Computed example of a mutant assay.
Amino acid sequence: MDHLFQIGEISQFFDVPASTLRYWEEKGILHPEKQSENHYREYSIEDLMTISDVIFYKNLGLQLKEIRDMDRLTPVQHGQLFAEKLSELEQQQKLLTHRMEKLRRHIQAVKILEELKNDPYQESGIDTDCIVSFDLIEREKLCQYIEDPYLYSRVQHSQTLPKEQRGITVSSDMAKSFPETSILWKKETNRYLTFLMKEEITAGFPNDLPCHLAHIQKTHRTGSIISRFLLCAQECGRTYDYYKTFVEILS
């Protein structure tokens, strides 16, 4: 007589909950024998093979209905099903890769914040070529911002500080596709001082840009001011928007 196994043994052997085995039986995938006197399930060697196949196919991403119907498929249909599953996994892989890249950018924003906080007023080039106007009702630009918030930029000038414009940074090649009237700023020089600007999320939205600018102007003539969004976070119980700010140094 072939050796028979109780549901508890099968559950422990495969590390599959007994409730899952019962569910597979309910869905017509498993067909264990039941003792006539107590209706206990008894699993045969053949059932072990079936369970092994179910686990294998589930690990490939197949649904229970697909697994149940596997024996009814032709070889060609098997190939089509597996090709569909492979395509689904490839799409999921692309999505995961995209999400991971966005997470890396956010982690980088946090690192930049800390670097600027610990070592402000370092001279550097600016990491954008052009900034175009941005209105929240412009769907395409809003989608660009959703993909990468660092694209969101504020444009000011040292001589007219309150006159602020907000836009999206674009490459020099992309800038050619925008009308001249929508261009807020273009890179003409590449000498800037960088620092962390923070703006409190409260009435009036006060920020510390004037303080930074006054400090820099003790030793430098300044021009354009570009602030690129990093993240929104709390500090000492207050909520701030943080920006990497570039102040143009004039010769």
Rank of each mutant, 00 (worst) to 15 (best):
K111Y: 13
G237N: 05
Q234H: 12
S124F: 10
A175D: 02
H220F: 05
E115A: 13
H31S: 15
Q217R: 02
K27H: 15
D208F: 00
A175W: 00
L30P: 12
E25H: 15
D47K: 03
I216F: 01
C232S: 13
G223S: 03
R221S: 07
S172N: 08
F205A: 09
F82D: 01
W24R: 13
S171V: 03
K163R: 09
P32S: 06
K186W: 06
D148A: 14
W185F: 04
N118K: 14
S11T: 09
E9R: 09
S182R: 00
P206V: 03
G204P: 05
P75F: 01
Y145N: 07
F5I: 04
S153K: 08
S182W: 00
P75K: 02
I137L: 08
L96D: 15
R68S: 10
S177V: 00
S11D: 09
I168V: 07
G167Q: 08
V155G: 03
I10G: 10
H31P: 12
D208N: 05
T50G: 12
P179F: 00
Q93R: 15
H212Q: 02
K34P: 11
I168A: 04
A175T: 02
S182T: 02
R221N: 08
T219D: 04
E200Y: 08
F229C: 12
E235H: 11
Q35S: 11
L4G: 07
K85W: 04
I7D: 06
H39T: 13
Y192L: 01
T160A: 09
S171I: 02
I225N: 00
E188G: 00
L86S: 05
F82K: 01
R41Y: 11
K65V: 11
T128R: 07
E235V: 09
C211M: 12
H215V: 01
Y121R: 02
L184T: 00
L151D: 13
H215N: 03
D127C: 04
Y152C: 10
D69A: 08
F82G: 00
R228S: 06
K102Q: 15
E188K: 05
T189Y: 04
R238H: 10
H31F: 15
K187E: 06
D119K: 10
G8Y: 12
R104F: 14
F82N: 01
S36R: 12
E33A: 11
K186G: 14
A203S: 09
L21G: 10
E147M: 13
F82W: 02
T202C: 06
L96Q: 14
L142D: 10
H220R: 05
Y240E: 07
A214T: 03
I146M: 13
K94V: 13
E33V: 11
R221D: 06
S177A: 02
H78L: 01
R22I: 14
S11A: 12
H106N: 15
S251Y: 04
L60I: 09
K187S: 04
R154Y: 14
A233S: 14
T222N: 03
K27G: 15
L81H: 01
D2N: 06
I29W: 14
F82H: 03
L64W: 10
I249Q: 06
I225C: 00
T202D: 08
V76A: 03
S158N: 06
I29M: 15
D241M: 09
E140W: 01
